[in-house]
Write a protein that binds this DNA or RNA. Structure first.
Lengths: 221, 221
DNA sequence: TGCCCCTATATTGTCGACACTTTGTTGGAC
DNA sequence: GTCCAACAAAGTGTCGACAATATAGGGGCA
């Protein structure tokens, strides 16, 4: 698994990471209110740190805050999901394009290796991709873009919301079978340094993924 | 001019807006250090509000903070500009696509009207677009996407950084003459509800703009 | 009975003080 | 003269208290 250099250095960081985890993994339910005083006793830190954490969570669209009223965890809706995946399509498409341009040969070789190891899992288990494997694949391409802006927006930003939708909809990962072929073709395009194709395939891949998850969400409501 | 509903409701908001303004417009120089104590006396508010403002500025990539050391205004570099415009190309391309799909006929008519009034200015003044006019055009399309995620990321996020580069490079706006035709064609595509073309033309428009501004920046260093 | 206003309470917004970390300096030893 | 270590100063990180605002409940009036 690719390591994200997100190491907490201060107590505020720890509080933020913990709170984000509890929200993304559903321990704190979507739509529920975030009381600063309550959370400060729960996590045993001062209200200042809770406030800072909530501010950061607001910046990555995990909570919504109203002045003088309070903050709530975002509610998961069909429209929200659609918007999220549209942004993801645009940004990750660009990331794939840049990855085709900027990844080193070694990184591409590693990516192929990752794909092979996933292929083994598919053969043995008969189904592709748990959450972690899919994230690993996408993270490598995002990091491969070598664009700090893109990396920050995707990995520190919207991917936590993506994971939150997945958890709430009770999926271990994306579509189990077809996704592998799509990943394979994307890696091929990157190997060939075909920027145009890499972007197009990534966008389609995410678009398919959106259709799939939208269908699941429609069942939930 | 389209009004952005960014109305300060709390003192923290005012501090944030003021500080952001001073950074974007160059009153506080790129790369300079942001001392919390110093700023708290300068703006006559407590350190807490300054801290919150700096946190928000960090979220939109206007400052960089190191734990226990401090925050600095971002330095403007060739790579940073390139990355910024790549993100902009991806997101605004998607915005144009969605605008072609989601703008009302009335909004499209207004957009055409805006273009006409700009055309008058071109004829009389001989040059297209001051900063404000260009921003207005792009903001309308972004808002026309009707996607809260996109709107937030672009208008609350990266557009301030875009303006900061423009100010620092001493440009009143984008390329003065050619931009008008590009805008016209984008509006035509949106009028025809041609999502594909609208996205493509917007991406090209921003790509051209990037080449233009990169050249100017190369001269400055 | 229904509506409005007012008050009480709980929650958020703002502040100044204290604790800890970093950094630059000064002194001494080799 | 150079390097290392202890120290001092400045700045950031964290905290609890006070102020201001929104919400809910009850009482008064039509």
């Amino acid at each position: 698994m690719v390591f994200l250099s997100e190491q907490p250095v201060t107590a505020a960081d720890k509080t933020f990471f913990q709170l984000r985890k509890d929200i993304v993994e559903g321990e704190i339910q979507p739509g529920s209110k975030l009381s600063e005083t309550e959370l400060s006793t729960k996590y045993a830190v001062s209200r200042s740190l809770i406030r800072e954490a909530i501010n950061r969570l607001e910046a990555c669209h995990l909570v919504e805050r109203k002045a003088n009223v309070g903050a709530r965890v975002v509610a998961l809706t069909q429209e929200g999901l659609t918007e999220l995946y549209q942004v993801r399509e645009a940004l990750e498409g660009m990331a794939a394009r840049l990855a085709a341009k900027n990844m080193t040969d070694q990184e591409i070789a590693d990516l192929n290796g990752l794909l092979s190891s996933h292929f083994q899992e598919v053969k043995s288990a008969g189904s592709y991709y748990q959450e972690a494997g899919d994230l690993d694949f996408h993270y490598r391409i995002i990091l491969g873009s070598k664009s700090n802006h893109l990396i920050s927006m995707l990995i520190n930003g919207i991917y936590h919301l993506v994971r939150m939708y997945r958890v709430q909809l009770g999926m271990a990962g994306p579509r189990v079978t077809t996704a592998f072929d799509e990943h394979k073709h994307i890696v091929q395009a990157i190997s060939n340094r075909d920027e145009e194709l890499a972007e197009m395939l990534m966008r389609r891949h995410i678009s398919y993924s959106r259709n799939n998850i939208e269908a699941k969400l429609a069942n939930n409501f």
